[in-house]
């Protein structure tokens, strides 16, 4: 059965079902339950925050503090511990509250977890899913709003997932937890309140498969995370000019689905990538590079990347709005490559 659910509920439900299914799935992070050792909460077996955004609410009362571990504010320590838990047979799901805190936790991912299997001759397995929150648009300013999935996705041994819809969020979360590798799961904080149909039952969506969210013939728009909605908006607008846009939600940033993107570009001959990350060395530039290499002869114009500017995320609401890629910016770039179609 399927019901309309919030993006945040979809994630909570996925975590719940993964924990139900496998007792080795253990959550850890800062305030993911909250209120540890607080007497009045303990007496009633209640959590407090259930995560800073309430995503993990209710899981501690159901599974206990052994499986929903509130950590001290020690990102390097507990992310390293997650690697140790994974390599000794558990299936930890650590939460890095904001992806901007990655500096503290990075060695566990870059130096340890991602490399163990390779360095140890294939004899180590590191099944862990790092949940983290990203994205601008919540006036959270420069240290709580970045989008670093591309940066993390450039590390060999790391898979990176960025869902845009509640349905994808649940299915990809369950895949991530089942996966025997280090998966980084990015949740856009501005999507938590969005709604969509989500089946009640356990289901998975393969990591590494993009989704064609709208079919089209003239222009391919590849999006990451909430940029899907910018892509869909642009497609609606261009439809009025008889330009048919195919919108591909990448869903997985590493490894990204080259076949789906290349096939689409071979059909349309035009490509725009919308990526909320800063503009250099990001997923968009990687896609542009691969497509120009693999499908150069099919291109009818330059590949356009619409990204955030090369600045930190500003606080002032008007500036933050300017920072995030939007339909106007995409349409300006599109105009250059679809001119002949409109004529």
């Amino acid at each position: 059965m399927s019901k309309e659910k919030l993006f945040m509920q979809a994630i909570n439900e996925a975590l719940d079902q993964a924990m139900e299914k496998d007792e080795d799935v253990i959550l850890l992070g800062e305030d993911i339950a909250g209120g540890a050792n607080v007497k009045h909460l303990e007496e009633k077996n209640e959590d407090s925050w259930g995560g800073t955004m309430g995503i993990t609410r209710g899981l501690m009362p159901k599974y206990g503090r052994e499986r929903v571990i509130d950590t001290p504010i020690s990102e390097m320590g507990y992310m390293g511990a997650a690697v140790g838990m994974a390599v000794t047979g558990l299936r930890p799901v650590p939460e890095l509250m904001f992806n901007d805190f990655i500096g503290f936790a990075l060695d566990s991912i870059l130096g340890q977890g991602s490399k163990m299997r390779y360095m140890f001759g294939g004899k180590a397995t590191v099944p862990m899913t790092v949940r983290t929150m990203h994205g601008a648009g919540a006036s959270a300013a420069a240290q709580h709003s970045g989008s670093y999935y591309g940066m993390l996705g450039s590390i060999p041994g790391v898979k990176v997932v960025v869902p845009a819809t509640p349905y994808d969020a649940k299915g990809l979360m369950l895949s991530a937890i089942e996966d025997n590798n280090l998966v980084m799961f990015f949740e856009d904080k501005t999507l938590y309140g969005t709604k969509g149909d989500v089946p009640d039952e356990y289901y998975t969506i393969p990591i590494g498969e993009a989704a064609i969210k709208r079919g089209g013939e003239d222009l391919t728009i590849v999006t990451i995370g909430k940029m899907l909605f910018v892509g869909l908006e642009v497609a609606e607008i261009l439809e009025k000019d008889n330009v048919s846009v195919e919108v591909i939600d990448l869903r997985t940033v590493a490894p990204w689905d080259q076949e789906t993107v290349i096939e689409s570009v071979k059909k349309t001959g035009r490509l725009i990538v919308i990526d909320e990350a800063n503009p250099h060395n990001n997923t968009a530039t990687d896609i542009a590079s691969v497509v120009s290499d693999r499908a150069f002869d099919y291109l009818d114009g330059p590949i356009k990347c619409v990204c955030a500017p090369n600045t930190p995320v500003p606080f002032a609401a008007n500036l933050e709005k300017l920072y995030i890629p939007n339909a106007d910016k995409v349409l300006r770039e599109a105009a250059e490559i679809i001119d002949d179609l409109k004529a």
């Binding site: 320590g77 511990a81 690697v83 140790g84 390599v87 000794t88």
Partner: peptide, 11 residues
């Protein structure tokens, strides 16, 4: 340090 701590959590 982190890896050892995690292995101890496992135990």
């Amino acid at each position: 340090f982190g890896i050892a701590t995690g292995a101890a959590i496992r135990n």
